[in-house]
């Protein structure tokens, strides 16, 4: 270990002692890294410009109408209402399932579990799950969750390919991320807080509930909002769990029927419109739908940043 860290230093010392001058390579290197950064940012600018330019005519001619009208076959009247409703319902399912489960798992791993082999196995498992491609979660949804939902009688008219199954699939997808961000938040809570609480005779759950969780809450909340944003923008698994890419109308369905019926989501709407050969859908409506998606995600991100800034604490 020590050899590792001193070797570069020694080389630098040697170089210095040999009196070599710093060549143009140094500034060229700095310039190269700057170009790398600027290109990354440039891509973002190009992307936003492309989207806004494409969406402009829809935004100016349709305005709020675009977000409040349902899917339609004619480009003049097509809106993203179904997509927004679907995405919001999916996100609620994700929030209800993944957040309590993920936080509980993280609390167990960080606060309760001893550093044993099984604990480390669970931790490794969570880390690896976080790296599994989202489409594989789609397969899990298709192969297991859809059948499970149908078997439990929540399949509805969509035979299990519904918001409940889609939401559960996304919940499983983000679960490891919730566990990891919550674990990080819990780890940032200083040990002194716990020790003080133990010192006054609190049980472990009392310590966790009244001291550790409140202290970690802002960080947990930030992570949670970002995680939900991730679920909101996810597309591939939903395609496998049967999000509709064609025309559909929800009619006068109640909430339960909507949860168990045909659905779509905002990113899926973007996908299906961008596949249309019809120029209006691909070149104008798709970027407008993307704009709606980005605005919603940006709002979520801003909320997360505000939570983080308002409750920033130094221990």
């Amino acid at each position: 270990m020590t050899a590792d860290t001193t070797t570069p230093t020694r080389i630098a010392v040697a170089a210095k002692l040999q009196g070599r001058r710093v060549g143009w390579g140094e500034s060229a290197f700095q310039l190269a890294t700057l170009i790398g950064l600027l290109l990354s940012l440039g891509v973002l600018v190009a992307l936003l410009a492309d989207i806004v330019a494409g969406a402009w005519s829809v935004v100016t001619t349709r305005g709020a109408d675009f977000v409040s009208t349902p899917i339609s076959l004619s480009a003049d009247t097509a809106g993203v209402l179904n997509g927004i409703i679907g995405s919001v319902l999916l996100t609620i399912v994700v929030a209800v399932v993944a957040i309590p489960l993920g936080i509980a798992a993280a609390v167990y791993l960080e606060e309760y579990a001893a550093d044993t082999r099984p604990t480390r196995f669970i931790q490794t498992n969570v880390r690896n799950l976080a790296g599994v491609p989202s489409i594989v979660y789609g397969l899990l949804g298709l192969g297991v969750i859809v059948r499970l939902v149908t078997a439990l009688g929540a399949g509805g008219s969509a035979n299990g390919r519904n918001i409940i199954a889609g939401g559960l699939t996304l919940a499983v997808l983000v679960l490891p991320i919730v566990v990891i961000t919550t674990s990080e938040a819990l780890r940032a809570v200083p040990a002194g807080i716990r020790e003080a609480a133990y010192g006054v005779g609190a049980t472990q759950w009392e310590v966790t509930r009244h001291q550790v969780l409140p202290a970690a809450l802002p960080a947990i909340l930030t992570g949670t909002v970002l995680t939900l944003a991730r679920a909101f923008g996810e597309t591939a698994p939903l395609l496998l769990v049967g999000a509709a890419t064609g025309f559909f109308a929800t009619g006068g369905q109640g909430l339960m029927e909507q949860l168990s019926g045909t659905y779509t989501a905002l990113p899926v709407v973007v996908y299906s419109w961008s596949r249309q050969p019809d120029g209006a859908f691909r070149d104008e409506l798709a970027p407008a739908a993307i704009l709606v998606l980005l605005v919603l995600l940006l709002a979520a991100n801003a909320a997360a940043i505000i939570i983080r800034n308002r409750s920033e604490r130094k221990w």
Binding site: I51, F232, G233, T235, Y271, A286, L294
Partner: peptide, 9 residues
């Protein structure tokens, strides 16, 4: 934070 469907487009 940009969804992959947007980058696909």
């Amino acid at each position: 934070g940009i969804p992959s469907v947007v980058l696909g487009y």
